[in-house]
């Protein structure tokens, strides 16, 4: 039996809304340590990795490791029926072919349950090696979303260049060229405006903006996002989900032929 009760139920809605356009169907893996998902987009250019630790749930029970294949579009439709402040409980029998979502209003005066059919999804699991990144930039998630959106109106690729002076996002296209530089400001009076750059050595990488834009759908999940880069390696775009875990995206670079 798998049963997990999440008091901040809208977190699940935000997670699914963040990934459903990148990945259509995926396996959610449940074990005693938590609730995870790893999936690549169809072109195998980007990967999403969700990890919600069991201790972040009000109640978490997983008698036997299980993998639940779901259509993320259908899951999003079900989660749309949850109230923003509802408590969400997921339940699935060990050898069942459905998963039930129960939504309870805070005053417990409204309880609903939705049953979703599970799917058989054969997804390959990738090993993500620990990487010694040359640069890790942490900036407000809304700032990152705005940079991706603004540059998308200029071109379809972005060069992200991290130096000790700051991190520069450059794009060019038929319209023209754009450079957005964000400088470190760990002294910003408001924590949510702080930008920090952990630089071991300067690094510059080129990426397709449409994926970076898609990752920014995770903005509601966290105040900040971290971009970790190393030469000729995929970038890791990391949203920390407070007290629960993380939603991470990886994107392969575009490299001179």
């Amino acid at each position: 039996m798998f049963e997990a009760r999440l008091v901040q139920g809208n977190l699940l809605k935000k997670v699914v809304d963040a990934v459903k356009d990148l990945v259509t169907d995926a396996n959610f893996d449940c074990s005693s340590s938590g609730f995870t998902l790893q999936a690549m987009d169809n072109s195998h250019v980007s990967l999403v990795s969700l990890s919600l630790r069991s201790d972040g749930f009000e109640h978490f029970r997983c008698d036997r490791n299980m993998s639940m294949g779901m259509s993320l579009g259908n899951l999003a439709k079900i989660l749309k029926c949850a109230g923003n402040d509802d408590i969400v409980t997921m339940k699935a029998a060990d050898d069942g072919d459905t998963v039930t979502f129960m939504f309870e209003s805070p005053k417990e005066d409204r309880v609903s349950d939705f049953e979703l059919k599970l799917m058989d999804i054969d997804s390959e699991h990738l090993g993500i090696p620990d990487t010694d990144y040359a640069a890790t930039v942490t900036l407000p998630a809304a700032e990152y979303q705005r940079i991706c959106r603004d540059l998308s109106s200029i071109g379809d690729t972005v060069v992200i260049s991290a130096t000790k002076d700051g991190v520069k996002f450059s794009s060019s296209g038929d319209v023209g060229t754009a450079n957005i530089t964000v400088r470190q400001n760990t002294t910003a009076d408001k924590k949510e405006e702080q930008v920090s750059i952990d630089l071991k050595e300067p690094v510059a990488l080129t990426f397709a903006l449409r994926y970076l834009n898609s990752f920014a759908k995770a903005t509601p999940l966290a105040s900040h996002v971290s971009l970790s880069m190393a030469r000729d390696l995929p970038v890791m775009v990391d949203y920390q989900i407070s007290d629960m875990g993380h939603l991470r995206f990886y994107l392969a670079p575009k490299i001179e032929d």
Partner: peptide, 14 residues
């Protein structure tokens, strides 16, 4: 032009 790489050039299937 820069060629879009594939994640499987970097991460192995486990």
């Amino acid at each position: 032009a820069d060629k879009q790489r594939n994640l499987k050039d970097y991460f192995n299937t486990v």
